[in-house]
Amino acid sequence: MQAIKLLFAKGPSLGVRLLVFATLSVALMAVDARLDTLQPIRDRLGMLVTPFYGIAGLPERLWSGVTQQFSSRSELLAENEKLKAETLLMQRRLQRLAALTEQNVRLRELLNSAALVDDRVLVAELIGVDPNPYTHRLLIDKGERDGVFLGQPVLDARGLMGQVVEVLPYTARVLLLTDSTHSIPVQVNRNGLRAIASGTGNPERLELRYVADTADIKAGDLLVSSGLGQRFPAGYPVATVDEVIRDSGQPFAIVRAIPTAALNRSRYLLLVFSDRRTPEERANDSALAQEQADRQLAEEKKEQGEAASSKPVTPVQQGAQKKPGVQETPRGAGR
Protein backbone atom coordinates (compact mmCIF):
# COMPACT_ATOMS: atom_id res chain seq x y z
CA MET A 1 0.00 0.00 0.00
CA GLN A 2 2.82 2.29 0.95
CA ALA A 3 4.57 1.59 -2.31
CA ILE A 4 1.45 2.39 -4.28
CA LYS A 5 1.08 5.63 -2.38
CA LEU A 6 4.67 6.55 -3.10
CA LEU A 7 4.15 5.65 -6.71
CA PHE A 8 1.56 8.36 -7.03
CA ALA A 9 3.13 10.70 -4.54
CA LYS A 10 3.53 13.98 -6.32
CA GLY A 11 3.71 17.55 -5.32
CA PRO A 12 6.13 20.18 -4.22
CA SER A 13 8.34 17.77 -2.28
CA LEU A 14 10.25 16.65 -5.39
CA GLY A 15 11.20 20.14 -6.47
CA VAL A 16 12.00 21.18 -2.93
CA ARG A 17 14.27 18.18 -2.46
CA LEU A 18 16.08 18.94 -5.71
CA LEU A 19 16.55 22.53 -4.56
CA VAL A 20 17.95 21.39 -1.21
CA PHE A 21 20.40 18.94 -2.78
CA ALA A 22 21.43 21.33 -5.53
CA THR A 23 22.11 24.08 -2.99
CA LEU A 24 24.09 21.66 -0.84
CA SER A 25 26.14 20.51 -3.83
CA VAL A 26 26.87 24.02 -5.06
CA ALA A 27 27.83 25.13 -1.55
CA LEU A 28 30.14 22.11 -1.18
CA MET A 29 31.74 22.80 -4.56
CA ALA A 30 32.30 26.46 -3.74
CA VAL A 31 33.84 25.63 -0.36
CA ASP A 32 35.96 22.87 -1.86
CA ALA A 33 37.24 25.10 -4.65
CA ARG A 34 38.10 28.12 -2.50
CA LEU A 35 38.93 26.88 0.99
CA ASP A 36 40.90 24.07 2.60
CA THR A 37 38.33 23.28 5.28
CA LEU A 38 37.14 20.09 3.55
CA GLN A 39 40.63 18.61 3.26
CA PRO A 40 40.36 16.41 6.42
CA ILE A 41 37.06 14.95 5.20
CA ARG A 42 38.54 14.37 1.77
CA ASP A 43 41.53 12.65 3.37
CA ARG A 44 39.33 10.35 5.41
CA LEU A 45 37.14 9.48 2.43
CA GLY A 46 40.31 9.12 0.41
CA MET A 47 40.98 5.86 2.26
CA LEU A 48 38.27 4.47 -0.01
CA VAL A 49 40.23 5.28 -3.10
CA THR A 50 43.05 2.79 -2.67
CA PRO A 51 41.00 -0.42 -2.35
CA PHE A 52 38.61 0.66 -5.11
CA TYR A 53 41.39 1.37 -7.58
CA GLY A 54 43.10 -1.81 -6.42
CA ILE A 55 40.08 -3.92 -7.34
CA ALA A 56 39.41 -1.95 -10.52
CA GLY A 57 42.98 -2.53 -11.68
CA LEU A 58 42.80 -6.24 -10.92
CA PRO A 59 41.70 -7.45 -14.39
CA GLU A 60 44.50 -5.53 -16.06
CA ARG A 61 47.09 -6.90 -13.62
CA LEU A 62 45.74 -10.43 -14.03
CA TRP A 63 45.92 -10.09 -17.80
CA SER A 64 49.51 -8.89 -17.72
CA GLY A 65 50.33 -11.75 -15.34
CA VAL A 66 48.77 -14.27 -17.70
CA THR A 67 50.56 -12.86 -20.75
CA GLN A 68 53.83 -13.00 -18.82
CA GLN A 69 53.14 -16.58 -17.86
CA PHE A 70 52.46 -17.63 -21.43
CA SER A 71 54.79 -15.43 -23.43
CA SER A 72 56.90 -17.60 -25.66
CA ARG A 73 60.55 -18.35 -25.07
CA SER A 74 61.69 -16.70 -28.28
CA GLU A 75 59.88 -13.52 -27.31
CA LEU A 76 61.57 -13.51 -23.93
CA LEU A 77 64.94 -14.14 -25.53
CA ALA A 78 64.41 -11.27 -27.94
CA GLU A 79 63.38 -8.99 -25.11
CA ASN A 80 66.37 -10.08 -23.08
CA GLU A 81 68.65 -9.34 -26.02
CA LYS A 82 67.12 -5.92 -26.43
CA LEU A 83 67.46 -5.12 -22.74
CA LYS A 84 71.10 -6.22 -22.77
CA ALA A 85 71.82 -3.90 -25.67
CA GLU A 86 70.04 -1.11 -23.87
CA THR A 87 72.03 -1.72 -20.69
CA LEU A 88 75.25 -1.55 -22.65
CA LEU A 89 74.24 1.78 -24.13
CA MET A 90 73.20 3.09 -20.73
CA GLN A 91 76.44 1.95 -19.15
CA ARG A 92 78.43 3.76 -21.78
CA ARG A 93 76.48 6.92 -21.04
CA LEU A 94 76.90 6.34 -17.31
CA GLN A 95 80.66 6.12 -17.68
CA ARG A 96 80.72 9.49 -19.33
CA LEU A 97 78.26 10.79 -16.75
CA ALA A 98 80.52 9.83 -13.85
CA ALA A 99 83.38 11.83 -15.31
CA LEU A 100 81.07 14.72 -16.10
CA THR A 101 79.55 14.71 -12.62
CA GLU A 102 82.97 14.81 -11.07
CA GLN A 103 83.97 17.65 -13.35
CA ASN A 104 80.73 19.43 -12.52
CA VAL A 105 81.35 19.12 -8.78
CA ARG A 106 84.88 20.45 -9.17
CA LEU A 107 83.74 23.39 -11.27
CA ARG A 108 81.01 24.16 -8.76
CA GLU A 109 83.58 24.10 -5.99
CA LEU A 110 85.63 26.61 -7.99
CA LEU A 111 82.54 28.76 -8.36
CA ASN A 112 81.83 28.44 -4.65
CA SER A 113 78.34 27.23 -5.54
CA ALA A 114 76.57 24.69 -3.40
CA ALA A 115 73.95 23.64 -5.92
CA LEU A 116 73.17 19.97 -5.67
CA VAL A 117 74.06 17.75 -8.59
CA ASP A 118 71.75 14.92 -7.66
CA ASP A 119 68.21 14.84 -6.31
CA ARG A 120 66.75 12.20 -4.05
CA VAL A 121 64.00 10.13 -5.69
CA LEU A 122 61.27 7.72 -4.65
CA VAL A 123 59.82 5.09 -6.98
CA ALA A 124 56.02 4.96 -7.21
CA GLU A 125 53.74 2.65 -9.12
CA LEU A 126 50.78 3.71 -11.21
CA ILE A 127 47.52 2.33 -9.79
CA GLY A 128 44.84 4.23 -11.65
CA VAL A 129 44.07 6.55 -14.52
CA ASP A 130 41.45 9.28 -14.39
CA PRO A 131 38.26 7.90 -16.00
CA ASN A 132 37.51 11.27 -17.58
CA PRO A 133 39.20 11.20 -21.01
CA TYR A 134 39.62 14.98 -21.06
CA THR A 135 41.73 15.22 -17.92
CA HIS A 136 45.20 13.71 -17.81
CA ARG A 137 45.70 12.61 -14.25
CA LEU A 138 47.15 9.50 -12.69
CA LEU A 139 46.83 7.89 -9.29
CA ILE A 140 50.04 6.58 -7.73
CA ASP A 141 50.59 4.28 -4.75
CA LYS A 142 52.63 6.71 -2.64
CA GLY A 143 51.01 9.31 -0.43
CA GLU A 144 51.45 11.55 2.57
CA ARG A 145 52.85 8.68 4.65
CA ASP A 146 55.74 8.35 2.19
CA GLY A 147 56.55 12.04 2.30
CA VAL A 148 54.86 13.03 -0.94
CA PHE A 149 54.01 16.74 -0.99
CA LEU A 150 51.82 19.01 -3.06
CA GLY A 151 53.53 20.23 -6.22
CA GLN A 152 56.17 17.52 -6.16
CA PRO A 153 57.70 16.88 -9.62
CA VAL A 154 57.19 13.43 -11.14
CA LEU A 155 59.51 11.82 -13.71
CA ASP A 156 59.77 8.62 -15.62
CA ALA A 157 62.91 7.14 -17.16
CA ARG A 158 62.80 9.51 -20.14
CA GLY A 159 61.74 12.85 -18.77
CA LEU A 160 59.34 14.96 -16.75
CA MET A 161 55.78 13.67 -16.48
CA GLY A 162 53.98 16.18 -14.29
CA GLN A 163 53.38 17.20 -10.71
CA VAL A 164 51.44 16.04 -7.67
CA VAL A 165 48.16 17.93 -7.31
CA GLU A 166 46.40 16.01 -4.56
CA VAL A 167 47.96 14.15 -1.64
CA LEU A 168 45.91 11.49 0.13
CA PRO A 169 47.17 9.35 3.03
CA TYR A 170 48.31 6.39 0.93
CA THR A 171 47.90 7.65 -2.63
CA ALA A 172 48.48 10.79 -4.62
CA ARG A 173 47.15 12.27 -7.83
CA VAL A 174 49.54 13.44 -10.53
CA LEU A 175 48.60 16.05 -13.12
CA LEU A 176 50.38 15.29 -16.40
CA LEU A 177 52.16 17.88 -18.53
CA THR A 178 49.65 17.38 -21.33
CA ASP A 179 46.55 18.26 -19.28
CA SER A 180 44.93 21.35 -20.69
CA THR A 181 45.29 23.15 -17.34
CA HIS A 182 49.03 22.54 -17.04
CA SER A 183 51.98 24.67 -18.13
CA ILE A 184 55.68 24.33 -17.46
CA PRO A 185 58.58 26.77 -17.98
CA VAL A 186 61.14 25.24 -20.36
CA GLN A 187 64.19 26.25 -22.30
CA VAL A 188 65.72 25.02 -25.52
CA ASN A 189 68.70 22.88 -24.61
CA ARG A 190 70.69 24.06 -27.64
CA ASN A 191 70.67 27.79 -26.94
CA GLY A 192 68.84 28.42 -23.67
CA LEU A 193 65.82 30.12 -25.25
CA ARG A 194 63.07 30.29 -22.64
CA ALA A 195 59.41 29.45 -23.28
CA ILE A 196 56.31 28.07 -21.63
CA ALA A 197 55.04 24.65 -22.67
CA SER A 198 51.30 24.23 -22.18
CA GLY A 199 49.29 21.04 -22.30
CA THR A 200 46.73 20.67 -25.04
CA GLY A 201 44.62 17.78 -23.80
CA ASN A 202 46.26 15.55 -26.42
CA PRO A 203 48.53 13.00 -24.70
CA GLU A 204 51.20 13.35 -27.39
CA ARG A 205 51.32 17.10 -27.78
CA LEU A 206 52.54 20.19 -25.97
CA GLU A 207 52.41 23.72 -27.33
CA LEU A 208 54.90 26.50 -26.73
CA ARG A 209 53.12 29.75 -26.01
CA TYR A 210 54.30 33.21 -27.01
CA VAL A 211 57.39 32.26 -28.96
CA ALA A 212 58.48 35.15 -31.17
CA ASP A 213 58.24 34.59 -34.91
CA THR A 214 61.95 35.18 -35.27
CA ALA A 215 63.06 33.02 -32.33
CA ASP A 216 65.81 30.49 -32.96
CA ILE A 217 63.89 27.27 -32.53
CA LYS A 218 63.53 24.39 -34.95
CA ALA A 219 62.14 20.88 -35.20
CA GLY A 220 64.21 18.36 -33.26
CA ASP A 221 65.26 20.76 -30.49
CA LEU A 222 65.23 19.27 -27.01
CA LEU A 223 63.30 21.26 -24.42
CA VAL A 224 64.45 20.93 -20.82
CA SER A 225 62.86 22.30 -17.65
CA SER A 226 64.29 25.71 -16.83
CA GLY A 227 63.49 25.63 -13.13
CA LEU A 228 62.19 29.20 -13.33
CA GLY A 229 58.79 28.44 -11.85
CA GLN A 230 60.61 27.09 -8.76
CA ARG A 231 58.46 24.00 -8.94
CA PHE A 232 60.33 21.70 -11.30
CA PRO A 233 64.06 21.10 -10.92
CA ALA A 234 66.10 22.52 -13.79
CA GLY A 235 67.65 20.41 -16.53
CA TYR A 236 65.25 17.51 -16.93
CA PRO A 237 64.10 16.74 -20.49
CA VAL A 238 60.48 17.72 -21.16
CA ALA A 239 59.78 17.45 -24.88
CA THR A 240 61.26 17.53 -28.35
CA VAL A 241 60.05 20.12 -30.83
CA ASP A 242 58.00 18.48 -33.56
CA GLU A 243 57.13 21.34 -35.85
CA VAL A 244 57.44 25.09 -35.98
CA ILE A 245 54.91 27.01 -38.04
CA ARG A 246 55.89 30.58 -38.78
CA ASP A 247 53.03 32.63 -40.17
CA SER A 248 53.97 36.23 -40.80
CA GLY A 249 50.34 37.23 -40.23
CA GLN A 250 50.44 35.93 -36.67
CA PRO A 251 52.26 37.66 -33.82
CA PHE A 252 53.73 34.42 -32.49
CA ALA A 253 55.03 31.23 -34.04
CA ILE A 254 53.09 28.02 -33.46
CA VAL A 255 55.48 25.50 -31.90
CA ARG A 256 54.34 21.95 -31.27
CA ALA A 257 56.36 19.49 -29.21
CA ILE A 258 56.12 15.83 -28.22
CA PRO A 259 56.74 14.96 -24.54
CA THR A 260 59.82 12.79 -24.07
CA ALA A 261 58.27 10.89 -21.15
CA ALA A 262 55.99 7.98 -22.03
CA LEU A 263 53.00 9.72 -20.45
CA ASN A 264 50.43 7.07 -21.21
CA ARG A 265 52.67 4.01 -21.04
CA SER A 266 54.93 4.34 -18.00
CA ARG A 267 53.99 2.11 -15.10
CA TYR A 268 56.74 3.17 -12.69
CA LEU A 269 57.31 6.81 -11.89
CA LEU A 270 59.95 8.68 -9.94
CA LEU A 271 59.02 11.27 -7.33
CA VAL A 272 61.78 13.85 -6.99
CA PHE A 273 62.71 15.41 -3.68
CA SER A 274 64.73 18.40 -4.83
CA ASP A 275 66.41 20.66 -2.35
CA ARG A 276 64.17 23.60 -1.54
CA ARG A 277 66.75 25.57 0.44
CA THR A 278 68.38 28.72 -0.91
CA PRO A 279 72.07 28.52 -1.93
CA GLU A 280 73.11 30.45 1.21
CA GLU A 281 71.24 28.09 3.50
CA ARG A 282 72.75 25.14 1.74
CA ALA A 283 76.26 26.59 2.08
CA ASN A 284 75.68 27.27 5.77
CA ASP A 285 74.30 23.79 6.37
CA SER A 286 77.16 22.10 4.58
CA ALA A 287 79.66 24.22 6.50
CA LEU A 288 78.04 23.25 9.80
CA ALA A 289 77.99 19.59 8.81
CA GLN A 290 81.66 19.77 7.84
CA GLU A 291 82.55 21.39 11.13
CA GLN A 292 80.69 18.72 13.05
CA ALA A 293 82.36 15.95 11.08
CA ASP A 294 85.78 17.48 11.76
CA ARG A 295 85.07 17.75 15.45
CA GLN A 296 83.92 14.15 15.55
CA LEU A 297 87.03 13.03 13.71
CA ALA A 298 89.23 14.92 16.10
CA GLU A 299 87.45 13.41 19.10
CA GLU A 300 87.75 9.94 17.63
CA LYS A 301 91.43 10.47 17.08
CA LYS A 302 91.77 11.66 20.65
CA GLU A 303 89.91 8.63 22.00
CA GLN A 304 91.96 6.29 19.87
CA GLY A 305 95.11 7.93 21.10
CA GLU A 306 93.99 7.57 24.69
CA ALA A 307 92.95 3.95 24.28
CA ALA A 308 95.87 2.72 22.16
CA SER A 309 98.77 4.34 23.98
CA SER A 310 99.13 3.55 27.61
CA LYS A 311 101.36 6.56 28.13
CA PRO A 312 99.62 9.72 29.29
CA VAL A 313 98.84 12.27 26.62
CA THR A 314 100.37 15.62 27.29
CA PRO A 315 98.31 18.75 26.78
CA VAL A 316 100.78 19.84 24.07
CA GLN A 317 100.06 16.70 22.04
CA GLN A 318 96.34 17.25 22.39
CA GLY A 319 96.63 20.74 21.06
CA ALA A 320 98.68 19.51 18.15
CA GLN A 321 96.04 16.94 17.33
CA LYS A 322 93.26 19.45 17.41
CA LYS A 323 94.91 21.99 15.17
CA PRO A 324 94.31 20.35 11.78
CA GLY A 325 90.64 20.04 12.63
CA VAL A 326 90.43 23.74 13.41
CA GLN A 327 92.21 24.61 10.22
CA GLU A 328 89.91 22.43 8.17
CA THR A 329 86.77 24.22 9.24
CA PRO A 330 87.09 27.31 7.04
CA ARG A 331 87.95 25.13 4.07
CA GLY A 332 84.75 23.19 4.60
CA ALA A 333 82.76 26.38 4.92
CA GLY A 334 83.86 27.46 1.48
CA ARG A 335 82.45 24.35 -0.13
Binding site: L24, S25, V26, A27, L28, M29, V31, D32, A33, L38, I41, R42, L45, G46, L48, V49, F52, Y53, D130, P131, N132, R137, E166, R173
Partner: peptide, 9 residues
Protein backbone atom coordinates in the same frame (compact mmCIF):
# COMPACT_ATOMS: atom_id res chain seq x y z
CA UNK B 1 36.27 11.42 -3.96
CA UNK B 2 37.22 8.56 -6.31
CA UNK B 3 37.70 10.86 -9.29
CA UNK B 4 39.27 13.73 -7.39
CA UNK B 5 36.73 16.21 -8.76
CA UNK B 6 35.23 19.01 -6.68
CA UNK B 7 33.09 17.57 -3.87
CA UNK B 8 29.49 17.93 -5.01
CA UNK B 9 30.06 17.92 -8.76
Amino acid sequence: VLNGTLLGQ
